[in-house]
Design a binder for these strands. Structure first.
Length: 384
DNA sequence: GGAACCGGGCTCTGCCATGGGT
DNA sequence: ACCCATGGCAGAGCCCGGTTCC
């Protein structure tokens, strides 16, 4: 997933500027909200509304991309009161760099409408779960909307209590907030709704410990609470009908290896699965083989058409048979680049992929290198 | 000792639509 | 008429290593 890979880049960019803080002065903390006395929309469309000048100047000084901000939330620019300077001071005190703050406001301008008191309270609630300010800054930089979209701190607090009552450990809550921060900006009702839905699914599948079920699913798939029940329901139905699973089999799948694919958009699941099926049919596989193949490694449904086909086609060109692939579905775990470099190295070392085991293609780097070394040694021994 | 099995670690935002409030 | 809060959607992998098995 491209967006997931970007995360590393983003955190690296942040590293350079994250290790500095500003002494939090109470004088600064309790500064009044900046406001424009005549903060109503100007009638004269030709001239820049004078009431916006302070705001625009402030934002420009802060390095905010005003065009982007205006495009995203134009309403913010018509407000009488905004709080950009206090927001900046607040975030700086938490260790956010100027660039990060500018990026946050550019992407989620409504952030400047929050009061320092509200921000401070919200921050403290997040700090109940996440132990360091910098980690929170990191999340905000990734996803400003998750923190700023709601100012309902009461619901946030109730959400935390609710998720605790579901039986999630502190560690799990931390993972949830780090990976799916939107979960905590959901209304309490929305989160409850999903948990109730999962309870129902659990009971309908004949498992009488719904709490355990929900805990397992959230552990396996921290993103589940930011999906719609409609989406999750459709995906469960898809799994059941496509693979004609009985209750037990479905239960094992969705709280195990299939938990992740509940997040995918329904079209995407169907599209990717159809592609897998057609691709394998084109090599003469039966429907039964396709089912067995996908169920043995459901995550392959994450693979978009191009990636899946490219990997299969590449392996075939390397004289690996389709039956070898469906016997070892986890080889598709590896990136195309890994598959390419390893097949080349192995062939060069005298390893016959067509007659030997191909699971080596998906081993961890450490194990793979150790094995490759032995293969090379063996090959040299045979030659001499 | 080496491979198979299997589970886990990382990891989800940015945009649009809509209903409610003023 | 406008803004805000919030629900929902599209999008789309790779790697590691502990334990068990032979």
């Amino acid at each position: 997933m491209a967006s997931r890979n970007l995360w590393h880049m983003r955190s690296n960019l942040l590293l350079g500027s994250r290790y500095w803080t500003i002494q939090y002065s109470t004088e600064i903390l309790f500064r009044s909200i900046s406001f424009r006395l005549f903060g109503v929309k100007h009638d004269n469309a030709d001239s820049e509304p004078s009431e916006n000048k302070d705001l625009l100047n402030n934002l420009l000084t802060m390095g905010v991309d005003i065009d982007m901000a205006k495009k995203r939330q134009p309403g913010v620019f018509n407000r009488m009161f905004t709080n950009e300077q206090d927001l900046q001071i607040f975030l700086q005190s938490k260790g956010a760099s100027k660039e990060v703050i500018a990026s946050i406001i550019s992407r989620y301008p409504r952030a400047i409408t929050r009061t320092t008191e509200s921000l401070s309270k919200r921050w403290d609630l997040w700090r109940k779960i996440i132990t360091s300010d910098l980690e929170i800054v990191n999340i905000l930089e990734r996803s400003p909307e998750s923190f700023f979209r709601s100012s309902n701190n009461e619901d946030l607090e109730k959400n935390i209590n609710f998720l605790c009552s579901v039986g999630l450990t502190h560690e799990c809550l931390c993972r949830l907030l780090t990976n799916a921060p939107r979960t905590f900006s959901n209304s309490l009702d929305l989160n409850k709704h999903m948990v109730e839905f999962l309870h129902e699914v659990c009971l309908s599948l004949g498992y009488n410990d719904p709490t355990d079920f929900v805990r397992k699913i959230i552990f396996k798939n921290p993103f589940i609470l930011i999906q719609s029940t409609k989406r999750v329901k459709a995906n469960i139905e898809f799994l059941q009908s496509t693979f004609t699973l009985n209750k037990d089999e479905l239960l094992v799948l969705i709280r195990g290896s299939g938990a992740g694919i509940l997040d995918l958009s329904n079209d995407c699941v169907k599209r990717n699965y159809t592609n897998i099926k057609e691709k394998l049919f084109s090599f003469g596989c039966t429907e039964e083989e396709v089912h067995k193949f996908v169920l043995s490694y459901p995550d392959m449904i994450f693979l978009a058409e191009k990636k899946f086909n490219d990997k299969i086609d590449y392996l075939i060109t390397e004289k690996i048979s389709i039956s070898q692939i469906i016997e070892s579905p986890r080889v598709l775990d590896s990136s195309l680049n890994t598959l390419k470099s390893r097949t080349k190295e192995l062939v060069h070392a005298g390893y016959n992929l067509n007659t030997s085991n191909i699971t080596i293609l998906s081993w961890s780097q450490k194990r793979y290198q150790a094995k490759l070394k032995k293969i090379r040694k063996q090959h040299l021994g045979l030659k001499s």
